[in-house]
Design a protein around this nucleic acid. Sequence first.
DNA 1: ACCCAGGGTCATA
DNA 2: TATGACCATGGG
Length: 220
Amino acid sequence: MPVSVSFRVIYDRLLADYGPRHWWPGDSAFEIMVGAVLTQNTAWTNVEKAIANLKRARAWSPRAIIESHPRRLASLIRPSGYYNVKAKRLRALCRWIVARGGVRRLAALTTDELRAELLAVHGIGPETADDILLYAFERPVFVIDAYTRRVFARLGMITGQEPYESLRATFEESLGEDVALYNEYHALIVRHGKDTCRKRPCCEICGLALNCPSAQQAPP
DNA sequence: ACCCAGGGTCATA
DNA sequence: TATGACCATGGG
C-alpha cells in the first residue's frame, strides 16, 4: 500500500497529525538568513541563544556583523556550536548582502539568480540556500534535509541516497509550484522527524511506513 | 557516558 | 561521484 501513496497524501496526513507549524521562526528576512547558517547541524534552541546574544550586543545588522571583531563575533555565537566556522560564514553572508546593496535589492533578483549567488557564498550549501530562498524570499523551492531523506526512505518512496538536486526535483515536480505548501511541508517533516517513534505508531505516517521502528513491532 | 542536532568545506581516491 | 575528517555546544 505505501507504494502508491503520493507526496500530497503524506502532506495531508502530517498536517492533520501536527497542525500548521508557522515557520520560519524569526521576524525578518535577515534573521531567517542568519538562523539558516547558525542552525547547520545544530539544535534550534542553541541558535536562539546565539541570536539573542547578537541582538543584545547590538551586532544585529549585516554591517554590524562585518565590523565586529572576529573573536568577538565567535564568542557571541558560541552557543550555536562550530563558532569559529560559523563566524566566518556569517561574515561571508553579510559581506554578500552589503555588496549587493541590502536585502531589499536582493529580493529583485530572480530565483535562479538568487540561488546561484547564495551557493557562491562561503558556508552556504544547497539546504541553507533553499531555506533562505523559501523562508526569507518566499520562492517556490522545496528544501531537502536529513529528516526528509529519513522519513521518505522509511515510507519506501525514496532510497534516501539520491543526490540533493534529484530529490528536490522529485518533490517539486510531484507537488507543483506552491510556496505556501513547500513552507508548511518542510516544517511538518522536521516536526515529524523529531519524533523518536518509540511508542508504536506514533502517528498516521508511522502506520504507513515500511521501515518505521515503531510500526515494525508485529501486533499479537 | 553516549548520542545527535533544521550542514558545509576540504582533502583524497 | 563519493567517501571521510573536521568543526563544538547543549539537551536527552
